[in-house]
Design a protein around this nucleic acid. Structure first.
Length: 211
DNA sequence: TAGACGATAGCCT
DNA sequence: GGCTATCGTCTAA
């Protein structure tokens, strides 16, 4: 799995949000094991967008968004949830794509364990357990849930997403989602800029956070 | 340094 | 569909 090149993050924030659908999120845990998921829901946030954290300028907590493209911007909201974003504009311009939902793929049982603690029974067959975890929307059908399942927290703020050796990156698969399979709609949970159609999701995916 | 406010999720009816 | 836990961050004073 090759990481997306940095140029991917410079095609424009709206285009990048759309293009990330079908791409693979790769997480390498401390013990070397890898979990992957297919991105099925994203939102775009731009510098002139009142809903964007950077709208009012540079602050200590949003400074990663003002930095180089292809890096992770992590923010906390409601005091308890982490949200994972990819920076999608050149240094000095603060724009990002929020990853709202993924479909667990490789090693889904690790995500299960991270979310619920040890699974009720230790699986003898990874494939069977992965099938179970795939069917369970509770793992990754929302921005706060997927960071919990992937063990992604504020320590990942600023992580370079273009390094295949890193603990977190976006991989380029062969899953191109056709336009007919994509729904473009308004964003979730915001009050300002609420009418911008800057949310994208895969229509058929059961892991989309909300329709 | 106090007060207000979230790019949510989960539980309740 | 409604309610709210929970706390980091920003803003104003």
């Amino acid at each position: 799995m090759q990481p997306l090149a940095r140029s991917f993050y410079l095609q424009g924030t709206l285009l990048a949000a759309r293009a990330l659908l079908g791409k693979t999120l790769v997480r390498r845990f401390d013990d070397g094991r890898i979990a992957t998921g297919r991105i099925v829901e994203t939102e775009a946030y731009t510098q002139d967008d009142p809903a964007c954290h950077a709208f009012r300028g540079l602050t200590k907590s949003n400074k990663t968004m003002w930095g180089a493209p292809g890096h992770a911007y992590i923010h906390i909201n409601y005091g308890l949830h982490y949200c994972l974003n990819a920076v999608t504009a050149p240094e000095g311009v603060a724009e990002a794509v929020l990853i709202r939902a993924i479909e667990p793929q490789e090693n889904a049982r690790l995500l299960w364990r991270n979310t619920f603690g040890e699974p009720p029974e230790e699986p003898t067959d990874d494939g069977a357990f992965d099938t179970l975890a795939r069917a369970d929307r509770r793992l990754t059908s929302g921005p706060g849930k997927l960071t919990r399942a992937l063990k992604v927290d504020r320590a990942f703020d600023g992580t370079d997403l273009t390094s295949a050796a890193g603990a977190l990156f976006f991989g380029d698969g062969d899953d191109d989602v056709p336009d007919a399979a994509v729904v473009t709609t308004t964003r979730i949970g915001i009050t300002k800029g609420a009418d911008f159609p800057w949310r994208f999701y895969v229509r058929a995916s059961p892991f989309v956070s909300r329709r």
